[in-house]
């Protein structure tokens, strides 16, 4: 998969509760998108909604396991979250919502500025930004399949369909 766009950059230790507070967890996706990251500062919500690529610092999404933070980022139009290292449940939830999460702490370490153009190629594992090149580890098959299907719901739908077909053939 290839992605290209401007990066919305966020710092270290942005907790899942900050991405989307629990009180908004049951809103519909559009309304969630209106609140995502607004707790952080005045421009954060607008910035995240402008970019498909979110550059995240250490522990982005740590804390709560509520999936709403990933759901809200998806609703805001985010497709890739790159940086990290990431908290485990945020990672799972993002993947299951069809967001690709790529470990690339060096990108954050180099101080990428908000609004910079960034290019990502998950097949070659190459990331380019501000004249520098970075490497990201290959996406494991089990995860690539979910993201390729769109999200875990679509992946599950196909899994069930294939399974019932197998059973019908047997």
């Amino acid at each position: 998969m290839k992605f290209r766009g401007t990066a919305a950059v966020f710092g270290d230790y942005v907790s899942g509760d900050t991405i989307l507070p629990a009180r908004y967890a049951f809103l519909d996706p559009e309304a969630m998108a209106g609140h995502v990251l607004e707790e952080l500062d005045g421009t954060a919500n607008e910035r995240v909604r402008r970019s498909e690529i979110l550059v995240a610092g250490t522990a982005f999404g740590y804390g709560t396991g509520r999936e709403s933070s990933a759901r809200a980022l998806r609703a805001a139009g985010v497709k890739v979250v790159i940086g990290g290292p990431f908290a485990r449940m945020f990672y799972r939830n993002a993947i299951n919502n069809g967001l690709l999460v790529l470990d690339c702490p060096a990108l954050v370490g180099d101080g990428v500025e908000d609004g910079r153009e960034i290019e990502i190629d998950t097949v070659s594992g190459e990331v380019r930004c501000a004249g520098r090149a970075y490497k990201v580890p290959p996406v494991p098959d089990a995860i690539g399949r979910i993201v390729a299907a769109g999200d875990l719901v679509e992946y599950g739908r196909r899994w069930l369909r294939d399974r019932s077909r197998e059973n019908a053939d047997a």
């Binding site: 396991g65 509520r66 999936e67 939830n93 719901v153 899994w159 069930l160």
Partner: peptide, 27 residues
């Protein structure tokens, strides 16, 4: 995310997302 509490009784207790819980119920 606080499912690990179950480790107190010697279980391997893992927190997962809501969608994947639905996936586990389905598959």
């Amino acid at each position: 995310s606080h499912t690990p509490s179950g480790g107190a009784l010697g279980a391997l207790a893992l927190g997962v997302g809501e969608t994947e819980l639905g996936f586990a119920w389905a598959t």
